[in-house]
Each structure stands twice: as C-alpha cells, then as structure tokens.
Amino acid sequence: MAVSVCEREFTLTGVASNIRSDGRGRSDVRAAAVESGGISQASGSCRVSSAGGTTVLVGIKVAVGAPAVTASTAADADLDADIAVDNSEDAELSISDADLRRGRVVCAIDCNPAIIPTMDPRAVEDLCIDFSEVITKILNADHGGLDLQSLCIVPGSTCWVIHVDALVLGYGGNLLDTLFQATRGALHDTLIPKVTVEESTSASTGNTSYEFDVADDETEDLKGCENIPVIVTLFKIGHHHVIDPTPLEEACSDVQLSVAINRKGLPCAIQKTGNGSIEPSQLAEMIQDAKAHGATLFKDMDEAIERQRVRSLNDTK
C-alpha cells in the first residue's frame, strides 16, 4: 500500500513513543474470538475473528492417502486396498523411511484479493502461498506437535492426510498469527475415524499383506494437538517492533519476524520476511518478546478451546 510520508512518520514516532494510532502500546494485542466446530461437514473447523477485523475460517478434512509426496510406493487412496509390503525392508529403516511411517499435513489458504484492498491482487496470492508454506512446514516437522506417527495406517503406503483449508474473510492486519491460531483451533476440534488394520502373512511367499477398515461411526481425537506451537509475528517499525499490527502499521514495517513458540515457551521455528534488516541485539529482544507473548497466547487459546469443548459437550447432552 502506498502510504503518505506524513502517515509513515506519524506511525514511526508513535511506535517510538509507545502510543500507536489506536492507543495501544507496542506489545498490546487486540482481543480475538475463537469459535470452533462451525462447519458440520468438516472433520474439524474453527473461526477466529480479531477485534481489528481479521477473520479467518479454517476447515480440516482428513483423507486416506499416501505418506509423502516423494514416496515411490504411492498407493491409491482406495479405502479397502490390499497393499503388500516386503517384510525384509522393514528391518533396516533409514531416515527417509521415517517419512513413510507417518501421516502428513497439507495446507491451502484462500483469500479474495478484494478483502485486502491495500495490497496488489497478485501480492495477496503470493502472501497466501507463503503463509500456507509456513503452516505446512511447521505442522509436518517434529516440532509441529502433532503425533504424525499415529496417523500412519499401513507403513510406507497408506496414512491419514490432514488437509487444512483456510479462508480469509476479513483483514485487519496480523494475518499469519490469526491463521495459525485458527488452524490450531480447528485441529483441536478434529475427529478422525478409527481404523482397524489386519495383518496377514501368506505362507507361500512370506510376504505380509495389510487390510484395513475405516470405521463409520467411531472417531478419535487427533493426538498431540495441545503441543502445536503458536506463531507470534513481530513487525519492525523504525527501531522498535510491535505485535498485532494494523494494516497501516504493516505497510510501514520493513521487516517481519515470525517466531513459533512451543508449549515449553521455547522458539521452535523462525522466519524473517521483508527486505529490511534486524540487528543481532534486537533479534534477541524480539525473540524474548515473542516468548512472552507466546505464553499468554497459549493460555488464551487453551481457555478458548476448553470453553468450546465444554459447550459442545453440553450441546450433545
């Protein structure tokens, strides 16, 4: 967005004197409402709407698929497919084989460019791709919290693929943090069908074949949801940094640092975006602030999710 020289100067001096244009201090955030389970057709869903106007809706779809895109043994996603796996290979598992023994997460973000009028439509598209990359990367990694091993159905050929589909409904700044918060909420809400796997070894060839059955009515929670980190993005404006910026503040920021904080309060992933630079001393300060804010975000999210759980329990009664 093109910002006038005066507005930029006003924002910069405002951030420097710890009074932002909406009266907040540098580390004050706007309240956000978390509402999960809104989409009954989805395996899990969550809507997060910030008081600043950013509204995000995330739907989760779990499907049976192949473990990793690169897996040579990519099998059909047929529900009752019989797949034979050579027993001898199981003995020596290499690191790449670990990928074959777990499920995966795929994230896609959709945003109508008209929702972000301050940005070029092409840039909005790029932003969505960038953000979906970040979310996919974090959730598929070991520090992503999810117990991906539990999503494995038949090692090497079949697993649960969790599709995270996010829709941006409103924009008031701080999109990535809100998107990840909604993703977290939706994964908490997700139920996957129970699977029973039958193993049989044919006497003649010595090969093991698997047969699995997806239950229609029995479901279970996704394991490890509570360990998914939170993302805190710090926007450097002038010599200081802020969290939860308004669109104008985002436009005045040269460089952003997204830090994923895990439940222990430690940073587990860091990404820098933008063309500006960060001094080493400020980097340490930024990560420190991210840790502090991450802890409060965890607390708020836990409370919100607990409230949703109690409400849905009451609804089913």
Binding site: C6, F10, T13, I19, S21, D22, G23
Partner: peptide, 20 residues
C-alpha cells in the same frame, strides 16, 4: 509540505482517543 508538526505524547493519546 511533507513534514508533521511536533506531537507530544499527550496530544498523540488525545488523537488516538478521539479516533477510537
């Protein structure tokens, strides 16, 4: 001109309050 007038913290807070 592209220059802001000097703004004190009190004035800045007043601008924010009226905006809100």
């Amino acid at each position: 001109a592209n220059v802001n007038e000097p703004i004190t913290n009190e004035e800045r807070m007043a601008i924010a309050r009226v905006s809100n």
